[in-house]
Structure formats: structure tokens, C-alpha cells
Design a protein around this nucleic acid. Structure first.
Ligand SMILES: [Mn+2]
Ligand SMILES: [Mn+2]
Ligand SMILES: [Zn+2]
Ligand SMILES: [Zn+2]
Lengths: 139, 139
DNA sequence: TGCTAATTAGCAATAGTTGCAAATTAGCAA
DNA sequence: TTGCTAATTTGCAACTATTGCTAATTAGCA
């Protein structure tokens, strides 16, 4: 995702308004690698801007995703995660603490057993234990 | 997933009862490669056994999954898919018709960019067009 | 400063799933 | 075969995540 400054320009160019709510979310998302949910963002945003609506958070996330500034990912946690990292990457989810980490693979794995399917996208979700949780569970 | 006959024995051994509802679901799931949702199974089951409850379908699917006879997968279609194929495999989802196909990969792709994460499972979801839909969209 | 289309907030509605409790029933023992 | 009882089924309420709708507000421009 681009910087809050760049997004401000991009929104105006697209005929969209730059509201304080949107500016706050631009800031909260920029360089955010926590893969937040709409609700977790809403909680943080609410402290900085009491009264902001969860609906507005959803709306802005949808706008950003449609503009290609965000990617939305589904890792089986029940709710959608939003990712300002739009590079081609995958995710590792800790079964213990739920943290979602970025993962890069050398090469998308080849298919076997499916003849005529034209792949446009492949997403991998790894599950296991993150570093911190592995250490914590050592006996 | 094992055969309805084997499951009948397995359920009794586990102290679970073998009801007509469960037997029907055993049959509907055996060799079923459609990756059905609870609701799609409920619809089929309802024709064969009017009055069966969606709640019972969910319950039986949960039981089978807990016994390791089914795997539940999430491909981003909004609802959980149930898969009697419990071999190590992945899925290809057609963006046009929504069909879910089994996919086997030669080797689990190696990680890069994540040092200490102990992977216990990796799931790949491919998206694109299935054979039928590719043909149909040829100009 | 005023206009107006875009946005926000609040709340209803929706989809998928699970919790709960009363009624029913499979499986066992007598 | 009959009766008992714990497991199961059903129906419905509740719940979570998300979207639809709309009146009130406001950013951006003239
Ligand atoms: Mn990511
Ligand atoms: Mn499968
Ligand atoms: Zn962890
Ligand atoms: Zn298709």
C-alpha cells in the first residue's frame, strides 16, 4: 500500500473524498504487517477517533482493496484479514497465538492430477507454531 | 472416508449411535468428490429423508471430522466445504462455476523469509478456470 | 460562502454456524 | 420382548462477520 500522502492524492484523483476517518485508516494501515481484521482496526481507530464507525472501517477497507492498495486474505480465523503488503506472498498462521506472518516461496508448486485448469492465482496457508510459541512450549 | 458399513461399526465402537440420519449422510458422503457444503448436503438429504434437520447435518459432519473421517476446507466461498478425501491434497477453485477440484502437488513448497516457524500443515488454494469454463469462454 | 455529490454513522438484515432444551430413539440388559 | 437410559434429533434462539439502507453530515469545488 502506498503512503498516506500518496493515497490522499490517489483518492482525490479518483473523485473520492479524503476524510479524517480515511486519513486515520491510511496511517493505521501503512507499514502494518499484523494482518488486522476490520474489527481490530476499528478498536485501534476508536481510541484515536472516538465515534468512528465500524461501518466506515469496512467501507474504507473495501475501497482500498478495490483500488488494489490492499489485499484481503482468508486464513481460517473466521474473519477477513487485510494486508497492505500487495507483493506476491503467502502466509503462515500460528495455531497457538493466531499471528499471521508473511511467507515467500521460491516457486509456485506445480500441479499434478488436474489436466485442464488454467491457474490465475495460488495461495498457500501454512499452519504450525511461530518462533515465540515454539520456544514457550519447550519443556 | 471409510465405507458406510465400516463407519457403522466405527460409530458403535466409539459409543455413538447409528441413526437413519447418519446412515444417509454416510452414503451421501462416500466417494463424494464434490466438496459439498452443509447446506448442499442438507438439500440432497432432505429429498431422501424429508424432515431431516440442517442441525443434524452439521452435527454429523462435525462428528465425522472429529473422528478424522472427513476434512473440512475453506476455499473462500463463504461456507465450509467437507471432503471425504482425507489424503494429503490441495484444491483448485473455478472462479466461474465455483467447482472445487482435488489437486496433488509434487512437493510441499519450501519456505523463504521465515526463520523460526515449525510448519505442521500447508494448504494451497488455486484459483482460475476449470476445463469446462475455459472452453465456454473461448471466443 | 454555498452547493452538491460523496461519505458517515447507525441500525436493520443477512448468511453461516453453534448453543440449548425438550422430545425422541438406538442399543443394551433383563 | 420389554424397559431403561444415554445419545441423538429437532426447532429455534443466539451469535459473528459482513453488507444494505438511509438520513444527516461534510469535503471539495465554484
Ligand atoms: Mn501478508
Ligand atoms: Mn478435496
Ligand atoms: Zn504463536
Ligand atoms: Zn468452472
Amino acid at each position: 500500500m502506498r503512503s498516506p500522502e500518496d493515497l490522499t492524492v490517489a483518492f482525490r484523483v479518483a473523485g473520492l473524498k479524503v476524510t479524517p476517518q480515511r486519513q486515520l485508516l491510511f496511517r493505521l494501515l501503512h507499514n502494518n504487517s499484523s494482518h488486522p481484521t476490520a474489527d481490530s482496526l476499528f478498536n485501534v481507530a476508536s481510541e484515536l477517533m472516538p465515534g468512528i464507525s465500524l461501518r466506515t472501517v469496512y467501507q474504507t477497507l473495501t475501497d482500498l482493496a478495490e483500488m488494489g492498495e490492499l489485499q484481503s486474505i482468508e486464513v481460517g480465523s473466521g474473519s477477513m484479514r487485510f494486508d497492505p503488503n500487495i507483493s506476491d506472498h503467502h502466509h503462515a498462521v500460528c495455531d497457538n497465538c493466531g499471528a499471521v506472518h508473511d511467507v515467500y516461496v521460491n516457486r509456485a508448486p506445480e500441479l499434478r492430477g488436474l489436466d485442464d485448469f488454467s491457474v490465475s492465482d495460488a495461495r498457500i496457508v501454512y499452519r504450525g507454531l511461530c518462533g515465540a510459541c515454539s520456544v514457550a512450549s519447550d519443556s
